[in-house]
Design a protein around this nucleic acid. Structure first.
Lengths: 354, 354
DNA sequence: CTGAAAGCGCTTACAG
DNA sequence: CTGAAAGCGCTTACAG
């Protein structure tokens, strides 16, 4: 077969029509300097006419040697909760997928109980000068300091897990926390009678600053109020994440409130409460958050009845892919990607993808 | 900067080490004829040593002009149910994504109420000689006839929505139906007292052959039996998918069974029952399947309380991507991809991705 | 301001 | 049985 020069496409066809070289076409496509206004206009018109879409394969192949580095800044996996395992896996999954486009991901971690560790890790991130950052913003003020520096340095960043609004992040990928508590309340409204009591349990070393939990609690109470449900709602805040402490506080509240029929734990620490419920033979419905091994164990046993899950692995995966779309592909990225609010029971968890 | 010939990679590096041309390397990689056994062995050894992974970008770019055609064979969207809208959207989403690799998708449809329409559409698919087929196998025997022909012609196929085991399909992507009913029963067990009755409603023109519904019903009953739940379970099969007929049968059963507190509709036709419940002011909990506009409307109103959803759009999307992975990328494909069993309420449906 | 050439990693004829 | 060359669509120096 003789070479068919008849059907050109892409930059070549544009160049042919505009009677210029493909180099000039490339300059216009990327809005680089050094093209006369007339030539530029003509080429832009032709691009419009053809509805030209660049072939990403060609583009990526041609820029093959350019390494792009992203940084991630998330809590380390601790003995208190293995929650952050899933996001890390999501980051690695994204990394595997885009490695072939020469993207490297440098992972930085901080201790959820140490503000300082966040500040230090953030400094190291800045020193590395990545071309994009994924952040789980546990400490609001410190995060804002950090993202302000990113803005100065023109480094795009995405938030996962919880949002800090109005920080011009490229995207937020995670739960809508108010709605998450609201929806949990909806489920719970089916599980109790009007004369039965509810206990809300917040477990976190720094509850005052832990906006996650408070937003969820707000949503929870919002649903009950809006729907005029009159169940007695008690609540305890536990700031020492130790079983003995948790047991003490639960013992106290159970003594005071005899009608507690259901416990709602506002985060992944529900397994501590599960242990208590199991050891003390409490006949309660127990609902908590997150698909962790320790939680699934109690779910399978029937001690935890429902887990609300919001795909933390997917959040991180999508966060990296958003950076990739923005930085490499130069494609638009959704500003908010709210995760579904998933209801997990002992009979459907095996099909769940966290 | 002078050309760095120092660091070669990929086929070039293999060729350099083996002291052959890249053409010969290519022949070995694709197991084509015309390479002496010794050369072949040597090259294979080097490939192993280097842990060589082909660059898919380069590969796809080089084979850019080869058009691959897949066919899809699913029910058309009918006035009875808009269920098949989501899979069609999933197919289109996959098509958009792999269009740049020159994949075309030809879409064939059949009428769920007309076996013959399936047979005819299947014939047209075969005539088109696609390189892969996605099938929603509503009619078992007819599907087996069809897939047998595909096997003869070496055309790979995937099933979505419901499976026909042992038909050597490349993959099944859809619900595990027994487990789906089983899990629904688990949820329902929280919603009723032991003295309250349950009504199972199957709605389909051909219930005897509609393995979907029966498998779900089995799973449902299985849960109640295994957990020793004694609720009275009634059931009706409705084979005329018309509101008047459905109303008549529901009227009859409600007259006979005074303790019905919860209705479980085993497929997406739950909106018919919702209309009945609403118009007749029945005080029941209503649970059904699938994220359809007509169902969501009743969910938002509070007439339907829960919908079980299994991402039909995702099923079709993954089905096409499985064909793409197998046919184009020559990568392995999972034989079973079971969908999660999602619980949708009026408060979380807006975040759901079907 | 513009063009011609080389190259990204691979595949595809073609020649021998 | 093997090699040399052209090409996929794009980007990147370099020369003028």
């Amino acid at each position: 077969m003789a070479k068919k020069k008849t059907i050109l496409s892409g930059v070549k066809e544009i160049a042919r029509r505009a009677k210029v070289s493909i180099g000039t076409v490339d300059r216009v496509i990327h809005d680089r300097n050094g093209v006369s206004p007339e030539t530029k206009k003509k080429i832009q018109r032709i691009i419009k006419e053809m509805d030209y879409q660049p072939n990403l394969l060609g583009r990526r192949l041609a820029t093959h040697n350019k390494v792009t580095t992203f940084a991630t800044l998330i809590p380390e996996i601790s003995s208190e909760t293995s929650f952050w395992e899933a996001p890390l896996l999501g980051i690695k999954r994204a990394e595997d997928e885009i490695r072939q486009y020469n993207v490297k991901i440098e992972k930085y971690f901080y201790d959820l109980n140490e503000k300082d560790s966040f500040v230090k890790a953030a400094k190291r991130v800045l020193r590395a000068k990545p071309e994009g950052v994924l952040i789980a913003p546990s400490f609001i003020d410190e995060t804002i300091d950090f993202t302000n520096r990113c803005k100065e340095l023109n480094i795009p960043y995405v938030f996962i897990d919880s949002d800090i609004p109005n920080q011009s992040s490229l995207s937020y990928i995670g739960p809508e926390l108010y709605r998450s508590g609201y929806s949990s309340a909806n489920l719970i409204s089916y599980l109790i009678r009007s004369d039965e009591g509810i206990l809300i349990v917040n477990i976190s070393k720094q509850i005052e600053t832990d906006h996650h939990l408070l937003r969820k609690e707000d949503g929870f109470r919002g649903f009950f109020k809006e729907n005029n449900l009159k169940n007695e709602i008690s609540k305890i805040d536990i700031t020492k994440v130790k079983y003995e402490e948790i047991k003490k506080q639960l013992d106290t509240i159970f003594l005071k409130k005899k009608n507690i029929r259901l416990i709602f734990v506002t985060n992944s620490r529900v397994s501590y409460v599960a242990r208590y419920v199991k050891e003390n033979h409490k006949n309660v419905i127990l609902i908590g958050y997150d698909f962790l091994d320790e939680n699934i164990k109690y779910l399978a046993e029937g001690v935890i009845n429902f887990l609300i899950c919001q795909k933390p692995g997917e959040q991180a995966y999508k966060g990296i892919m958003a950076l990739y779309r923005h930085v490499i592909l130069k494609l638009p990225v959704e500003e908010y990607m709210y995760m579904p609010i998933d209801v997990i029971m002992k009979t459907n968890y095996s099909f769940y993808r966290n």
